[in-house]
Amino acid sequence: MNHVETALFRASLISPKVQASLPKGYVLRPLQSGDYERGFLDVLKVLTEVGDHTKAQWLERFNYLKQHSHEYFTIVIVEEAKNKVVAAGSVIVERKFVHLNGLVGHIEDIAVDANQQGKKFGIKIIEALKYIGENTGCYKVILDCSEKNIPFYEKCGFSHKEYEMVWRPSPSAKL
């Protein structure tokens, strides 16, 4: 039985310019339902603790995001010869009341496999996410980053604006 993969969102939101700029053998596309096996979660491990997802947990989250594909846009760069995810990032579109019910894109989870760094995949992911933000009607696209990453994001066209604050509930807190 052939399994047909599902893309998280419509491929027409992928930047043709970024796609054309990738090295031969690499493709930029929406996250797909089979990317669990292609190492998507392994790529995210360069950022933070990911956890040991089962395939069922992966599909549960993927299907939720798919049902909200007007808000969640996760993209990947795949090395075609190895059928392996080598870079990823997301933009989440927030619906606001300000700016006449405007939309704001929030870039999250930019990750490049440690063995693929130096190929400018991070910049390409950012450019592709900005393209999605612009083409979904966002009046701005924002992100949070560590101080050491400010020069990278400035190269991507971002400028410093505010300060990030964080509050985390205690691990024992339950909803």
Rank of each mutant, 00 (worst) to 15 (best):
I126A: 08
N2W: 03
R10C: 15
H99M: 14
Q67A: 14
H3I: 11
V43M: 11
L65E: 02
E80L: 12
F9R: 02
K45L: 02
Y36L: 06
G89L: 05
G89C: 10
K120C: 08
L103C: 10
K148H: 03
A128D: 02
V18T: 13
G102W: 01
L129C: 06
T48E: 09
Q19M: 14
V50G: 06
G25C: 11
V91F: 02
Y36K: 05
E108S: 05
P169A: 11
K45A: 09
L13K: 09
S146R: 07
K84F: 01
S146Y: 04
S170T: 08
G89Y: 05
Q67E: 14
W167E: 12
A87P: 07
K148R: 07
G89T: 08
H3Y: 12
A87H: 05
V86G: 04
Y131A: 05
K174G: 01
A173H: 13
L59F: 06
E164N: 15
I132L: 10
S12V: 06
V86T: 10
L22V: 09
S159A: 09
L8F: 04
C156D: 09
S15P: 07
N135E: 13
K140M: 15
G137F: 01
E94K: 06
S172I: 04
E94N: 04
E60R: 11
G122M: 06
Y26H: 14
D35L: 06
E5T: 10
E60K: 11
V46K: 06
Y26P: 02
H106W: 15
H160F: 03
K82V: 01
Y72F: 13
Q67S: 14
K130A: 03
D52V: 01
S69M: 05
L8S: 03
S69E: 11
V86A: 08
Y139F: 14
F40D: 06
S170E: 13
W58P: 00
E134S: 08
L59V: 06
T54G: 08
L41E: 12
Y36R: 03
A88N: 09
Y36G: 03
L44Q: 09
V76A: 07
T136F: 05
K82A: 13
I77E: 05
Y153W: 10
Y64L: 07
Y163R: 15
I125W: 02
N135F: 04
C145M: 01
P23F: 13
E154T: 09
N63D: 11
K130R: 12
Q67Y: 05
K130Y: 02
A128Y: 01
E49Q: 10
S90Q: 06
R10S: 15
N63P: 00
I92Q: 07
Y64G: 06
N135T: 10
S69D: 14
V43A: 09
E79Y: 13
E71W: 01
E60C: 07
L143S: 05
A87Y: 02
L129E: 02
F158I: 07
E162A: 13
E60Q: 13
K24Y: 15
Q117N: 13
P23C: 12
L175Y: 03
M1T: 11
V86D: 04
K130G: 03
G133I: 00
E37L: 01
L22K: 10
H70P: 00
G133H: 01
I77G: 04
A20W: 13
H53S: 03
Q67N: 14
H160I: 07
V46C: 10
W167V: 12
F97D: 08
V93Y: 08
Y36T: 03
K130V: 10
V166E: 15
G157V: 03
A88Q: 04
G39C: 04
K119H: 15
H160R: 13
